[in-house]
């Protein structure tokens, strides 16, 4: 009896652990990380580039940064699998801050 109740407890515990949102994939994690590094390098090069206007470069660099932020939120923080309210809160933050920064950096002077 003791053994049986112990096993049940273990299964309950493990059941909680097992509530992972998705099967982990090393390839997917590496692809997201690689994307983040490539975007960082693209932003860095755009910052040096003289071929496009300062305004265009600024807008692209800020947009790319918020694409990176959303990748971190969705995949690394696992918000992709979270309840809708949290997804919405994060997306609203991204949109609002990205929009505010582009507006202040490009249109307010």
């Amino acid at each position: 009896m003791t053994n049986s109740s112990q096993i049940k407890q273990v299964q309950t515990d493990m059941g909680l652990i097992a509530q992972q949102p998705h099967k982990s994939s090393l390839v997917k994690d590496l692809v997201v990380w690689l994307g983040l590094v490539v975007f960082t390098l693209i932003s860095f090069i755009l910052g040096q580039n003289q071929a496009i206007s300062t305004e265009q470069a600024t807008a692209i660099i800020i947009l790319v940064s918020f694409v990176k932020i959303r990748l971190v939120i969705r995949y690394f923080m696992e918000v992709k699998y979270a309840p809708l309210l949290l997804k919405l809160a994060m997306d609203v933050w991204c949109l609002a801050v990205c929009g505010l920064l582009i507006f202040l950096l490009l249109f307010s002077f």
Partner: peptide, 19 residues
Amino acid sequence: ENLTGLTTTSTNSSKEYLP
């Protein structure tokens, strides 16, 4: 071993997950 086995069998049991 226990963790692995049980994790594998129960994966994707729920759609939403709040880490």
